[in-house]
Nucleic acid binder design. Structure first.
Length: 577
RNA sequence: GCGCCCGUAGCUCAGCUGGACAGAGCGGCGGCCUUCUAAGCCGCGGGUCGCAGGUUCGACUCCUGCCGGGCGCGCCA
């Protein structure tokens, strides 16, 4: 159930009946408990446009609203708010519906499913993943899960950087510094080493740079030997990547790297030229995006071009990105594409979108940007020696630290054999939660002690809250899936918990619509807090049958919602900890 | 130079797209384990929402200017 939608519909109908106009009732959860559970703010705005006193309008609407089933109290307050207090029994019944809805936990699917491509993670071949890829991977995965849960056909696509200039450098570098032994060992680390040497050499030594360009030309013209070498790079890299994705629990539907679009590139440039969207300038083919009628405000009048072919004839990632848009439209039949990419690339996407709009592309394209992960010093996260932190090392440290914390915890309900598994779930969950906790656009500070603190708003707290619910079911020897209530709300903590739980549908929809997983994180934290308070004040198992049945049912909804919410964020729920 | 983003409690962050006295976590102070996990709960203290104007019945939210910080801007991705 979407509580806000339900209340909005009642609100709109009451405005229609009472005032004879169509208007958004602007339903919001009440800020203060004295104001009730929900409030209508819409009459204030309406007062202005109708030039009538808002309180008068609010009174008319409150009148129409008052009779309806959900409300215990409807009252006009302040300058023209309508405060709504929901009936305990109504809340309990709706929660009963959620309890019965085992498939969706009360979150309705969207009315109109779409095909949505989510472009995320997208690391480079021949490089290890480092923290720079963490947010795209975690955020992208959560967004995929959210959209998919709402019934969309979602294609998570790992748009690998598997084509381009770096391969010329790599091929030339291998000839010079490659070690067959090392390549058979940790191939990606070796490739990375060679790449570093080669890119340095290319800067210092023109002859070597030429050599690299020649290698690239041979690769791109289909030389079989180089092609085979490249293929090996891709395969070796993919194996290394899969190891990290496995640990993170991340899956893709597609691995269509940049090389997949190679054949389309000449055609893209031709079309742009033919249609007059691009023109040659200083030997390069450029789209002067600032001149396009499709240009957004921020790009209007900009002089810098969007270059789609270099003066040496080579294509760029801009070209590939255009081809990718066309492929996603024509072959994947996407309605929407989400690019989960660092916000610093906002200009690139603005240019890309304006260019493809000029080509007649109408599907929804959205750059889902995100901020930078900062170290404890407030600068972008790096190792002591300035190198980017690899994801593998980061995850290792998270698990190690989690295990150390678990071992020093008192009252552990864990047999030693299970510690490793729980440490993995807690460590990795903590890293993910630290990322998903705040608005994706803000830069955030990565602080080990905070994210693994095991107290306050951190990943382990949510996992702990879930584990506690499971513990009650175990101790009571009840199967939560067979509980049927009925739920009766007796104590304030029960009502507070129930009300929070009823918001889940609204939250999941809002999070999916805005690609804002932090809304789910925030909600789960509220559930956990409400649950802890409930737990503190209300006994469950040692009560008489009716109270016990009701509280177990309430707990079952909370338990499932935590599990579902964590799953939507890609965080493992733990049975015991 | 042009453009984008940010500035909210000592620290880390929310603030639902203008609404009722601005919220949470950490840290500080004080309480609570003979009852289903104290990794918890309850309470207290803490903010001129960078500054100055403007629009509005009403501004953390919208507009303008300034200050401070981050980032992006022809042939890398």
């Amino acid at each position: 159930m979407l509580l806000t939608r339900l209340l909005s519909e009642l609100g709109s109908a009451s405005i229609r009946d009472g005032l004879g106009v169509e208007a958004d009732p602007a339903v919001r959860p009440a800020q203060q408990p004295e104001h009730g559970d929900y409030q209508l703010n819409g009459l204030l705005a309406l007062g202005r446009s109708l030039r009538r006193p808002p309180r008068e309008l609010a009174a008319a609407v409150a009148d129409r609203l008052a009779g309806h089933d959900p409300f215990e109290r409807v009252e006009v307050a302040g300058p023209g708010f309508v405060n709504l207090r929901l009936r305990d029994a109504w809340i309990a019944e709706r929660l009963g519906d959620v309890l019965a809805d085992r498939a969706r936990d009360g979150v309705p699917a969207v009315d109109r499913p779409e095909t949505i491509v989510v472009d995320f993670s997208s690391p480079n071949v021949a490089k290890q993943m480092h923290v720079g890829h963490l947010r795209s991977t975690i955020l992208g995965d959560a967004i995929v899960r959210l959209l998919r849960f709402l019934g969309h056909r979602v294609l998570g696509d790992n748009h690998l950087g598997d084509w381009g200039t770096q391969f010329g450098l790599l091929l030339a570098g291998i000839k010079r510094w490659g070690s067959q032994v090392a390549l058979e060992g940790d191939a990606v680390a070796e490739l990375e080493r060679i790449y570093r040497l080669a890119s340095e050499a290319a800067r210092a030594d023109e002859a070597f740079a030429d050599e690299a360009r020649a290698e690239l030309a041979r690769l791109q013209s289909g030389d079989p030997e180089r092609r085979a070498q490249w293929q090996r790079f891709v395969e070796q890299t993919r194996r290394t990547l899969e190891r990290v994705y496995d640990r993170l629990g991340v899956r893709f539907d597609l691995w269509l790297g940049e090389s997949s679009y190679e054949a389309m590139l000449p055609g893209v440039v031709e079309e742009l030229l033919r249609r007059g969207i691009a023109r040659e300038d200083q030997g390069a083919v450029c789209v002067f995006v600032g001149e396009l009628p499709e240009a957004p405000e921020a790009l209007r009048g900009r002089k810098e071009p969007f270059i789609v072919r270099k003066k040496d004839g080579a294509f760029l990632y801009s070209t590939t990105d255009i081809a990718t848009v066309l492929y996603r439209r024509d072959t994947l039949r996407a309605d929407r594409v989400l690019y989960v990419v660092d916000v610093r690339q906002a200009d690139h996407f603005a240019q890309l979108f304006a260019t493809v709009r000029a080509m007649g592309v109408t599907m929804r394209l959205e750059h889902v940007g995100f901020g930078t992960i900062l170290g404890e010093d407030g600068r972008p996260l790096r190792t002591r020696d300035g190198a980017p932190v690899t994801l593998e090392a980061l995850l290792d440290e998270a698990v190690t630290r989690a295990e150390a914390r678990l071992r020093q915890a008192e009252g552990l309900e864990l047999d030693p054999a299970a510690i490793g598994e729980v440490a993995r779930a807690v460590g990795i969950g903590a890293v993910k939660y630290a990322d998903l906790r705040q608005h994706r656009l803000t830069d955030y500070r990565f602080e080990w002690d905070k994210l693994l603190s095991f107290k306050g708003n951190a990943g382990p707290y949510l996992q702990y809250a879930y584990a506690r619910t499971r513990s009650v079911f175990r101790r009571g020897a009840v199967d939560p899936d067979t509980l049927a209530g009925p739920i009766v709300l007796r104590e304030p903590p029960e009502r507070a918990l129930a009300l929070v739980l009823l918001r889940f549908g609204d939250v999941v929809h809002a999070a999916a619509d805005g690609a804002l997983p932090h809304l789910v994180a925030e909600h789960l934290y509220e559930v956990a807090v409400a649950l802890s308070t409930f737990y503190e004040r209300c006994r469950v198992l040692h009560e008489d049958a009716a109270v016990r049945a009701s509280r177990l049912a309430l707990l079952a909804v909370a338990s499932r919602q935590l599990r579902r919410g964590l799953e939507l964020l890609g965080i493992t729920a733990i049975e015991r900890m």
